[in-house]
Amino acid sequence: MKSLLNFLLRIHFFLLFILIEIFSISLLVDNNYYQRSRMVNFTRELSGRYHQKLAELKEYFSLQEINQQLVEENNRLLNIIESTYRSEELFFRNVNDTVFNQRYFYTPARVVNNSVNKKHNFITLNKGKKQGIKPEMAVVSNGSIVGVVKGVSENFATVISLLNLDFKISAKVKKNGYFGSLSWDGKDYHTAILNEIPLHADVQVGDSIITSGFSSIYPEGILIGYIDNFEEKGGSFYTIYVKLSTDFKQLNYVNIIGNLTQTEKLEIEQKAIKNNE
């Protein structure tokens, strides 16, 4: 301590000089518009370069992931092209089949790959483009929810599992219809979290949670799980822990739900939003 003080005393002249200079220059930068703008530009340039370098570095590490994403993106784009033909075909076929009012169709599939222990879990199914599977189709197992198709290849489909931090779904309490958004917190593969249910809603342990049908992906009323526990957490909403009715560890056969009116619904919603703007 004493030697430190001695040291400080020895360099007090230089230290004081630095302090006063810093003070003066901060005064300068704070009070003079020109110098401030130069300074801000300089630091922005510096931090911009730093962030760019960092991003380049990160990009290198995530090349594999990006490749994967590109493959999936390609798949999705190809599918969109394909689906323009297919949807007409389907329409044509549906008229012929006289099931004009059919809204959803189910395709059975088998799980060929699955995980529950990552933060972003995906499931692979053995049905693909050839079987008419498209991205954004819902996947259920025994009438309870599993996930949503993310990308398809000729014979396989990748499904974002409900056990994925990026997965969000609109859900509601079955008995009174209060809806909120359900997502997984990445901890336990038995439990998901339902947010945005207001405090005045009557919820009990054991109540069923079902899909709300607001998204164009899921039909209304597919079972998600049962309320396991709930608590008030800041503000006016419940945090509800939902015990999932699907056992993701035992997933074997699933159904893929296609929504024939999905494009129509999205189109009209899109139109409404556009008109609003």
Partner: peptide, 18 residues
């Protein structure tokens, strides 16, 4: 009306003086 400009320069000069 150049707050900080002359003061930093003058302090710099005083620093060099010894």
């Amino acid at each position: 009306n150049t707050l900080g400009m002359h003061s930093s320069a003058t302090v710099f000069m005083a620093f060099l003086r010894p």
